[in-house]
Design a binder for these strands. Structure first.
Lengths: 209, 209, 209, 209
DNA sequence: TATGAATGAGAGTTCATTCAT
DNA sequence: GATGAATGAACTCTCATTCAT
């Protein structure tokens, strides 16, 4: 600490100047080359700082990685929270969850891809923390599902399990959709609707009317 | 084709026994430590061969990795092929796809986890090949779905997209289910049924007589 | 001269208190971790000052080290000077030199060990200065020996050589005596007497009436 | 191991070619620059091998250092053992111990100086092992002293303590004697005789005839 | 005076790969 | 076929030091 203090007003974590620049640079490089492909030297260069500065703000490479990942999930959570609050109901909620997640994953170079990529393997040491991050996100969605179930708007399922299912559903398709071929293009077009449809059908209550 | 031929590969490729021993050792170590965590020295030791021998059978580490991955997918495909052929019908097919995939991923230490882990990231250089491997598997499932659609047993969707969705669905839940906590236990218990239910509801034809 | 003046240095050099605090902290850390084991950051923390302050008082780490060492030798000289002055005679002088040196080296954590440790190696750049410091101390003892020789109280030897011999004698045994085992305990008990005996026998005049 | 095997006939440890070359190069550099001053890169260059080779033979820098030190002590022990065996008696034994130790320390650049330098501090982690090495040497001398005591050729003292005293005596004077000035020259000339005289007087039995 | 963010050379170590045997 | 000694680029990380404030 100390490093991160300096002026407390901007965004959230990783403070003002350098720390943010480092984190953003790292996000790009981790997304592009993976954890092991992006060396500290490379990150420092991309951020335009010295290696020393890098270690001034983050105790280790793993900390840089986790900071990046945390920021990505925080952002995703914030976006998700911003979406409802009003009384939007069932099918709409599901559709929005799917579309939002899809959009944020498919979006370009940023750390977005990291989320779809890093939640397993890669850095064995970090696994518990990474899974915890993902769990936080999944649980937020699970809570939304629970409320909808309580209101009878979707059928009763295991909420957390269903949340993970929805995330995986979207991530898997997105991963295919970012490739460069014709099929990928097709998927980017139809993906959100098809997935929303799938999700909604999976969750809608039985039509026992 | 291609899909059906693949499980032959693992026979003729595996050489006189040494190649197979190496590949199996590598499968264990990659699954346990990831691509970068498992060094060539370690693999050689685990396989009980010299480094020289290792390089005699595989030109590079990446080749070892791809051989492992190919073998895993081949095995998965073979299992999938073994399941139907007879006239099993729609909900049953879906259920079996889900359960099989779930089982093979959740199964302990083996290369199973590799499949759920490596399809993204980790080794950027290998991405195209890894995605191609996954595509092959996805396309096999897509073909199954297409046939079912043709017979009117499930509703019409984008088959490949749907296949990816199903894979992601299962993988995501499995990844959570292999953790050690109570929730994980719960998911391992309920996972297959819940997921099969989700999948079937997502795919079943509209009940409009 | 020189020898007598030195213990004044530690007063005027130590500045307004901060310099002294730094030097004392450094003494502890150098003694505990060696020159390379004690970083400037660590010293600053132990002293409760900023790195900036540290560099305000000492141009470099080597200067901190030399200041510590100088202070240790000054203190040792001061103690030595305080001991005689009156007409204590030969065997007593020898005994006291040995005991004093032994005691100050064996004394716990303080900079004492530094003296027994740093007079060789560790920081090649500083060797000349460290040897000079040691020489000053040795020469003080050599002068004492010379006087005793002049009075015929001890036999004639090369005074400086003999002084070094006495220092080494004590340091070597002390170094062994600070270990934690039973032998070390034994040596701490018997060390001073045995060494004093050895030294006295080595130096006493031939008994030829 | 494996590396060290290859052809088992030469000297003792550190086998045939590279390992020996590395160790000798390291001995020179550690003696000249101290443990921290001699980097692995430098050692590799001095030995004319790659860094990889260096790590092929020694697991870590500390191992290189200990190998060097062990070799020095082994050599010293071997020399010591070679000297008597016949029935040389008391004053001669003492003189030889002193002279031998003096000679081997004063001898040029080799690892000789290391022994006089490294037995304290420098690498805190290695202290126990270094002290153990020194202890082994001291105990050998202590055994010689014990035998002489048993035969009544020298007076009864604490043998190990006395051994350490003798070593320190010589080392301290040697350290001064390797400097370049006139006094050093003087000490190199008179050192052995003066020290032998000191040692003999310290140890000879009381003349109670 | 006093601070601590910033620097960057250099540290020890790893590891995929080569090649003479 | 099979070995493993040898390579060296690249890695993460440390630390004495500087300097704008």
């Amino acid at each position: 600490m100390g490093a991160v203090r300096t002026n407390v007003r901007s965004e959230d974590k990783a403070g003002p100047g350098l720390a943010r620049r480092i984190r953003d640079a790292a996000a790009r490089l981790f997304a592009r080359h993976g954890f092991h492909g992006a060396g500290m030297r490379l990150i420092a260069e991309e951020a335009g700082v010295s290696i020393g500065a890098l270690y001034h703000y983050f105790p280790s490479k793993e900390d840089v990685f986790m900071a990046v990942l945390r920021q990505e999930y925080d952002q995703r959570l914030a976006e998700a929270q911003a979406l409802w609050q009003e009384g939007t109901s069932a099918p709409e909620v599901v559709r929005r969850v799917v579309e939002l997640h899809f959009a944020s994953l498919a979006a370009g170079e940023g750390g977005g891809r990291l989320v779809g990529r890093a939640w397993q393997g890669e850095v064995p040491t970090l696994r518990p923390q990474i899974l915890a991050l993902r769990e936080e996100y999944a649980q937020y969605i699970a809570r939304l599902l629970s409320k909808a179930m309580a209101r009878g708007e979707i059928r009763r399922t295991h909420p957390l399990l269903t949340a993970y299912a929805l995330l995986g559903l979207v991530e898997s398709v997105t991963a295919r959709a970012v490739a460069g071929d014709a099929v990928a293009h097709e998927m980017r077009e139809e993906g959100p609707q098809e997935l929303a449809e799938i999700a909604w059908r999976a969750l809608r209550p039985d039509e026992a009317g």
